[in-house]
Every structure is written in C-alpha cells, then in structure tokens.
Design a protein around this nucleic acid. Structure first.
Lengths: 246, 246
DNA sequence: CTAATAGTGTCTATAAGACACTATTGT
DNA sequence: ACAATAGTGTCTTATAGACACTATTAG
C-alpha cells in the first residue's frame, strides 16, 4: 500500500567542505513517531532514553538514530532501519513529516521527523513500549523535539485518514467494518455514524474487499459467525474522500 | 494570511559532540522554490549558480543558503532570509516541504526544502529571474535536488489550492474572480467552468471580500468599468474545499 | 428474552457540474 | 454591430447526514 522508503536516492551537490571549517558540529538525527492502536486508543511507541544513566525506564524518547555519511542510507532508509532495530516493526506506512533545527550545547541539531503506522496488536520486540496518547500529556520525551514530532505525526495521520486508505494499515486482516470505524474514531477522537460510515466505505472503490470464506476443510461450513470480514483494498487514495465531521 | 516562519523555536537536545569526530562534514542548506505567475503561467524564481565560473547566467539554482549554527536563525527564519536577500521578496506564504539527504563529494549534504509564493507582477530585485515551469523541462538546476524541490513545491501548491486560500496570494489586490480563476487554471493546468467557479468562490465564507469602491474625490462616480473587484478574505482554510476536477 | 451491535432502506440537505441565458466591454 | 468575457438562473446528479427499521449475536 503506501510506499515507504520508495524515494529514489537523489544527489545533493552543494559543497560540504565549506562547512566544518570554523563552524561547530551539526548532528543530524532521524526520529520516527510509530503510531498504532492499543485497547482501541491511539498510541505511540517509545524506547528508553539511553542518556539516562540511573533510573532507566523513567525517561523515554522516540525511536531515533544519528544520520551518518558513512552509512549507505538516505534519511528515508535510515528511518526504516531505526524502526526495525528498535521495535522490530516493518511499517505499512512510513512518511517524512518535516525537519526541525535548533541548538544543542555548543553545536547544532537537525531532526528529520517521520511518521509510521502498524496494525493494532502487532507484537513489538526490544525495549520499546506503547503509550496511549491521552496518557502522554504530562510525560515529556527527553529530546523536547520528540513531543513536537508526535503532535505533527498525529495531525498528519488525522489528515491522511481523510483521503488515503492508511486506516486499513491500523487494523490486522481480516477486519470488520466496525473495527475500521473504530480506527477513525480513535484517531479523530470523534464518534462516527455506524450506518453512514459503512455505506461510505463500501461505496469507495478499492478501500476494502470482502474476505474470502475461511473454507478450512472443504465441505465443512464456515465456523465463524458475526460481522462481515474484509481485507485491505488495492487503492491508496480515496475517491470520494472520508472527510472529518464538522 | 498563511503563517510563514510562525513556528516557535523548538529545542533539539541530542548530543552534537558525538558527530564530527571521525565523520565527514555535513552541509545543511535551505532551498526555497518561490512560485509566482508570469504572463498567466506558473513560474519559479531562480538565481545564477555561483559555482559556475565562466559563462555566468548559464546555470541556475534556487535561492538557497547554508544553515550555520552561528547565525541565530532556525531553518524557517533562514528560508525567509534567503528569499529576502536573493529576490527581495517577502512572501505571503512560506512553508517547509521536506528534507533530502545525500552525498556530496566526501561529505554529506542535507537540503531542507521550502515552498513560497508571491503575487503575479511582484517586482523582483537582484539577479533572480522567473522561469515558466513549462520552459523548465530541459533546463536543469545546478544542484540536482533543486529540480526535485520544484516538483514537490508545485505539487504542494496544487494541493494547497484545494483547501486553503493561498490562491489569493498569487494575485495582487484588487483582483477579479476571473483573475483568481486563472490562478487555479495555471497551477492545476486545467480549464475550469467560469460560472461554477465564481459561484463556489462567492459561496465560500472568507475566501474573498468585495473591494470597496475607489471613491477618489467623493461625489465623483467610480471611473472604473469591468468585472467586480475583490480583496483577499480573512479565512485561511476553505469550507467547503475547492477540489480539483476529475 | 433482552440488550447491544451489525446491517439495510430511505429521506433530506448540500454541493458539484452542466447548460441556457443576459449583461458588459473592447474592437 | 460583433465577439469575447462577466455574471445569473436553474436543473441534474452525487454525496453527506439523519433516522427508522430488521438481523444477528452475547449474556
């Protein structure tokens, strides 16, 4: 579905020798806000901040890593890599948000921010933990920018739900229409009209496709009862869009 | 209208001392695609590439500048600054696009890209020149990334026309509804239905406001004849949106 | 059985697009 | 006068949202 790390490497030509003569060092890092659902609530994955010597686990940060010239990765590739190493996640959706610049000590720091998404219930490896966004209010991330990255990531996701099929990347297959609706409700933070939501989703070509019967043995009739099951559709963009209420 | 350089400075904390030990230098530059209309066509402003020693003027690049820790500007501020020095423009709209990373010689280059917009007919100072985008096809910019920046800028602008009032930043006040329509037609590259366009614009609250009569003397009736004149409205977002055809 | 949720049918309001027509302006 | 553009009226279709109703499932 959504193309992660699809960007072909582009040459950047300005003269790097001009920098680094008298200028203080510049640290370039990539930080990824990996969003998912936990108990039906929108959550972000965080990892323990390494800098904290003593009470490890008290301070958290986004999965991130320094961008080094020596590694043969552009920022998009590094973002995918950072996610894989720190959480084991292979996101369905990974997209650059924007870049923040600021000072750090006597040098400068550049943070290239990303947003990524994995389905609810995906197992997470490593020392990462999911925090529901509502619980996140008081708790600050160690690098202050990471809080901004989370805000921007949520806003980007909210907007992407409107005109893309990302929402299907937040549920695991097969899923029901109500489950998909709860994704929208969790991300947008508003209740949606079940009947109208269903009709809209089914009327949008390529959004979802009916799941084939789970014909196990062959003659055995389907065990399952309950709401209709669906798979992710083939479309990436929604026509018409699913606009937020109000 | 649209908030340029509105972003409050955000602290970025990672350790910059970790970089610059064995790593090659990193050059961070800001590049701005300043879009406007020239003879009714979408155009981008370029400046002569300094690197070219001989036939100056043969090679062009976007207004850009190195981001230095020493200067007391974040990237947004530098983008505004770069525009001002190289073109004299104070854009109505300035927004970060994304960041490109790549190699440059034995070092690394980071390009933070911006898109900006000024009204058709705005006077340009300095050695900058406007190139219609159609004429731009063969001609390459010196830093290869700059071509990508232009593409991304145009795409961002196309999309912003749909749900914001940026289009009014591409005409000078006062303007007529047909003039505003020609902005949309130039940026989207499609003809629009004049009657429906007009009704849509006038039905969208805060998009435009009727220009007050140019009451010069007082009792003297208005000299001007022709289409109705309008000023930019107060809204930044469009409700409902002006969606692209098809 | 009963409550809660899933799913269908239908009506209304809003907005988009097409088209016919009148008004104004420049040549 | 004529052609081109500006502006108005109105109709058709698509979509959003509300609501009433039936079907299914879990307790």
């Amino acid at each position: 579905m959504m193309a992660a790390r699809s960007m072909t490497r582009t040459a950047v030509d300005p003269d790097p020798a001009a920098v680094g003569r008298h200028e203080p060092p510049v640290a370039v890092e990539v930080a990824v806000a990996l969003l998912t659902l936990r108990q039906g609530r929108l959550a972000v994955l965080a990892v323990p901040a390494a800098d904290e010597g003593g009470a490890s686990g008290a301070v958290w940060q986004l999965p991130s890593g320094p961008w080094r010239t020596s590694a043969n990765l552009d920022a998009d590739g590094l973002a995918a890599d950072v996610l894989d190493t720190s959480t084991g996640a292979k996101p369905f959706f990974l997209e650059q948000l924007r870049t923040y610049t600021g000072r750090a000590g006597r040098g400068a720091a550049v943070t290239i921010a990303y947003v990524a998404v994995i389905p609810e219930g995906t197992a997470i490896v490593g020392r990462s933990r999911a925090f529901a966004l509502d619980d996140l209010d008081g708790m600050g991330f160690l690098p202050t920018v990471h809080e901004r990255v989370v805000d921007d990531a949520v806003e980007r996701l909210r907007s992407k739900l409107e005109y893309t099929t990302v929402a299907t990347s937040l549920v695991s297959e097969p899923f029901t229409i109500p489950e998909l609706r709860r994704v929208y409700e969790a991300v947008w933070g508003v209740p949606l009209h079940p009947a109208n939501f269903r009709r809209k989703v089914l009327a949008t070509p390529g959004f979802v496709s009916p799941a084939p019967e789970t014909g196990d043995g062959g003659g055995v009739p389907d065990e399952r009862r309950g709401p209709d099951l669906h798979l992710r559709g083939t479309a990436a963009l929604l026509h018409p869009a699913m606009l937020r209420p109000q």
